[in-house]
Nucleic acid binder design. Structure first.
Length: 257
DNA sequence: ATGTCCTCTCTTAGAGGA
């Protein structure tokens, strides 16, 4: 089974690229982030016509997350991260598919830091750590994937020294991410490729993709029951080079059946 | 500071976010 995550940076602008990638790689489960579309403007029919079931939680202008499956039943569990009824951002969606619990997330960017946006990022991470801990304690097979907006270590940035003050790499951000990992999650890409330079995002500015000046900020975290099934993981980085691409590339894992 | 792309509006230019 192949599971993928893709920050599309606008589902409607990205639809031709998304459909091309889906037909090329045929992932079984896909989490999408940054739909940037209100609930009623999601392109449900073209995605269904491509052979996918879909649930989504849109929002005007910003955020928005979706989950697609290639013919598999989606049992939605929640479309809001628990812990703050005041938080109206569409940043989390969770479902059961084939006995697997899949959480798709779009963690806040948090810039500029310090400031209220960074505070929001850190409080969102605290809520996420609590929820992830509850999921881990359930003993179920769980995949938490999406745009974490976290550069975990220095090898995950082209020039890490330029990011030390940035919300994606500040000590508080990395510390929170490490506390999450300490619950027992496996970072799938790093487990299989411990030293390799692997990026999932390349800025639109200054030909970052052409220079491979990227970041690794889209992650797959696996509970032990899923980690034991992990066969391979990678980034479809060529998609980033397509016309009208997102600034992220799709990331995927392959699990044994 | 800058660069680019996306979305929305007091819309065809500018603001905000990433």
């Amino acid at each position: 089974m192949r599971i993928a995550t893709y920050n599309v940076n606008g589902i409607n602008s990205r639809l031709p690229v998304l459909l091309r990638w889906l037909s090329e790689t045929q992932p079984d489960i896909v989490c999408l982030q940054e739909l940037k579309a209100p609930q009623e403007n999601f392109p449900e029919q073209p995605i269904k016509d491509a052979g996918y079931n879909v649930i989504w939680h849109g929002q005007k202008s910003w955020n928005g997350v979706a989950m697609l499956t290639r013919g598999l039943e989606i049992k939605e569990r929640r479309r809001v991260l628990p812990g703050d009824p005041e938080d109206l951002h569409s940043r989390y969606i969770e479902a059961e598919v084939e006995g697997l619990i899949v959480g798709g997330l779009y963690l806040p960017n948090g810039n500029p830091a310090p400031g209220p946006k960074f505070d929001y990022k850190l409080s969102w991470m605290e809520r996420f750590i609590i929820h992830a801990g509850d999921l881990m304690a359930s003993g179920l097979p769980i995949v938490l994937t999406g745009d974490y907006n976290v550069i975990p270590t220095e090898i995950d940035a082209y020039k890490p020294e330029r990011w030390v003050e940035d919300a994606l790499f500040r000590p508080e951000t990395r510390a929170a991410f490490n506390r999450l990992l300490d619950q027992g999650w496996t970072d799938a890409i790093r487990k299989l490729h411990p030293q390799e330079t692997i990026y999932t995002f390349w800025d639109y500015f200054r030909d970052a993709y052409g220079r491979n000046a990227g970041l690794r900020i889209d992650h797959f975290l696996l509970s032990p029951q899923v980690d034991s099934r992990l066969q391979s993981a990678g980034v479809d980085r060529h998609v980033r080079g397509w016309e009208k691409s997102s600034d992220h590339g799709p990331v995927w894992i392959e699990l044994a059946d």
